[in-house]
């Protein structure tokens, strides 16, 4: 028996909106730790890892570890039927082949049940070891989204370089080139407006903008995005989900031919 009651149902709606175009189907895993997912995009270039910790749920019952295969567009379609202020409860029976999403309006005058068929998904689970990153950039998530969107009008790839001067996002296309430099600025009025760069060594990596743009669909989940870079590793683009966990996107770099 599984029963997870999330007061802030909009969080789950936003999570699905942020991953449904990147990943078509995935196993959601539920254990005492929480509700989680790890999935790759169909070309195995990017990976998404989601964790919603059990403490973040108003009620969290998970009698045994369970893995539920879902088609994400279908799940997103059902969650779109929940109001932004609704409480969402996820329910499933052990060994069952369906999951139920229950939506309660804030004043309890409307209760809806949506039952969705589960599917068997043979997915590869990857072990991601803790890593030391050469540079970690924290910046407003809206600023990062704007940069990715702007650069993708010029080119297909972005070179992210971190030096003492700041973080530089560059691209090149048929019509020309673009460079956007963001300097550390920790002395702003609001902490969520700050750009903070922790650099151990300069680093420069190239990534496909198509994926970066897809990751920025998680912008509504967090004011701040953290970008961790190391020359031998995929970049990690992390959005913290208020008091509950995180959504992390890993993207393998492109290398010179």
């Amino acid at each position: 028996m599984l029963e997870l009651r999330l007061l802030q149902g909009s969080l789950l709606k936003k999570v699905l909106e942020s991953i449904k175009d990147l990943v078509t189907e995935a196993n959601f895993d539920c254990s005492a730790t929480g509700f989680s997912l790890q999935a790759m995009d169909s070309s195995h270039v990017a990976l998404v890892a989601l964790l919603l910790r059990s403490e973040g749920f108003e009620h969290f019952r998970c009698d045994r570890n369970i893995s539920m295969g879902m088609k994400l567009v279908n799940m997103a379609m059902m969650l779109k039927c929940a109001g932004n202020d609704d409480i969402i409860t996820i329910k499933a029976d052990d060994g069952g082949d369906t999951v139920t999403f229950m939506f309660e309006s804030p004043n309890q005058d409307k209760i809806a049940d949506f039952e969705m068929k589960l599917m068997n998904i043979d997915s590869e689970h990857l072990g991601i070891p803790e890593a030391e990153y050469q540079a970690i950039v924290r910046m407003p998530s809206s600023e990062f989204a704007r940069i990715c969107k702007d650069l993708s009008t010029i080119g297909d790839t972005v070179i992210i370089s971190v030096t003492k001067e700041g973080v530089k996002f560059s691209t090149k296309g048929d019509i020309g080139t673009a460079n956007i430099v963001c300097r550390q600025n920790a002395t702003v009025d609001k902490p969520e407006d700050a750009i903070i760069i922790e650099m151990k060594e300069p680093v420069s990596l190239t990534f496909a903008l198509r994926y970066m743009n897809s990751f920025t669909k998680a912008t509504p989940l967090a004011n701040i995005v953290t970008i961790s870079l190391s020359s031998e590793l995929p970049v990690v683009v992390e959005y913290k989900i208020a008091e509950m966990g995180y959504i992390r996107f890993y993207l393998a770099p492109k290398i010179e031919e």
Partner: peptide, 14 residues
């Protein structure tokens, strides 16, 4: 431009 690496080249299957 460039060769796109795969995520599975970096992380092991568990």
């Amino acid at each position: 431009r460039g060769i796109q690496l795969s995520i599975t080249e970096f992380y092991r299957s568990t």
